[in-house]
Design a protein around this nucleic acid. Structure first.
Length: 268
DNA sequence: TTCCATGTTCCGCA
DNA sequence: TTGCGGAACATGGA
């Protein structure tokens, strides 16, 4: 799940329930997920300090450690989640990092496939620069002209371009399919051949999909029936036209699209 | 058992 | 040199 909308929900969860609670202890269960930081350093930086702020850029969540001039950075990979639980709640499965607050509550960072990252950075801005992440389309929504500029000079498929975190940060396989479905654009359409009209549709689909997804708490089961998400299945009926949903591969990922209303691309 | 998976990175080829 | 697409990665569920 963890694309921009999911991580936005985690960010809001952290903001509403993990701040200003001093950390009593830190437990790391997946050394392999530690990015340029030892479990020992993580413990030292966090112990005794509350989290002061939560921020997000793309798929990365940043939690400011009060008084340390450091931010805990979490990346959720394909299966990561963030949970905040009470003292007497059960341990969620696949917990990789756990912060025990002094008041007894806990913050759990879980990951089934261990593909995410746990890091420590000086600031979100510095990390974004270093990782060369593109603009975040939720925190800093572009207008159509801005989107045109972002996509300028890209020669690959629009799907590949939108999934490239250095172009625009936060979109992944599922939501790129959703956006292109809404905009009626074929995932293989060459980015540099999108005309103004198409770009306009892409722009409104981007805004529509992101705000809709966050509004429904990024829960696939709650997405509107008119969306692709509830029908990511080969052969399903398209909810907006007479077409059928077909599955193919684009930029190495399984891709679902309507074979009738998503035009402007090339077949494999 | 085999296949597939919402993530990123790395390698080879324009 | 840069950008693109596919393979590889680690693990578990269908």
């Amino acid at each position: 799940m963890p694309e921009l909308p999911d991580v936005q929900v985690f960010t809001e969860l952290a903001e509403s329930s993990a701040l200003r609670r001093p950390v009593a202890s830190v437990h790391v269960d997946a050394e392999g997920m530690l990015a340029d930081v030892s479990a020992e350093t993580l413990r030292r930086r966090l112990k005794g300090h509350p989290l002061a702020a939560a921020r997000r850029h793309g798929k990365h969540l940043f939690l400011e450690i009060e008084g340390e001039e450091r931010w805990l950075r979490l990346h959720f990979g394909m299966t990561g989640e963030l949970l905040v639980v009470d003292a007497d709640d059960d341990e969620p499965p696949y917990t990789r990092l756990r912060l025990d607050f002094e008041d007894g509550g806990r913050l759990h960072f879980t990951s089934r496939r261990k593909l995410g990252e746990i890091g420590l950075v000086k600031s979100p801005e510095a990390f974004v620069r270093e990782r060369k992440l593109g603009p975040d389309p939720w925190n800093d929504a572009p207008d159509t002209a801005g989107l045109r500029e972002i996509l300028q000079g890209r020669s690959g498929s629009i799907k590949g371009t939108l999934m490239n975190q250095e172009v625009i940060a936060g979109l992944g396989n599922v939501y790129v399919d959703e956006i292109l479905f809404h905009a009626g654009i074929h995932p293989k359409a060459p980015t540099n051949e999108l005309d103004d009209d198409t770009l306009e549709r892409l722009h409104s689909a981007l805004g529509e999909v992101l705000s809709g997804a966050v509004k429904h708490r990024a829960d696939p089961d709650r997405m509107p029936e008119s969306w692709l998400l509830p029908r990511r299945k080969e052969g399903a009926a398209c909810p907006r036209c007479d077409g059928k949903i077909v599955k193919s591969e684009v930029s190495g990922r399984s891709t679902y699209r309507c074979d009738t209303h998503q035009k402007g691309g090339r077949e494999a």
